[in-house]
Amino acid sequence: MGERKDYLWLVLVFLLFVVALLEAVFISLPITLFLVIVLAFYWEEKIFPWAFWVGVWRDLASWCHLGVWSMIFLAAALLTIIIKRRGLGLESNKLSLPK
């Protein structure tokens, strides 16, 4: 069961990178940002490293200035976590996906 959860985590991270690549070269909709927000809602602090690296990947793929999308994704993730905890009044880790 635990292996299955790890597999899910890996799939989601892989999906995040694939979506970022698609957004950079093909689709103009901010789907990566949406995915980062959704994952931040469940993963909370654990999203930060992935938000950072996906941002770098996104910048490289779209030949943008490095660090821009990392900051955007990190800010969006933080905002999501703050809204979740304070705005919605949900307790930490209550709805997060299993590790």
Partner: peptide, 12 residues
């Protein structure tokens, strides 16, 4: 968050 954000800023 602060660590990664600062790192992203440095990269920028």
């Amino acid at each position: 968050f602060l660590v990664y954000f600062l790192f992203a800023g440095a990269l920028f």
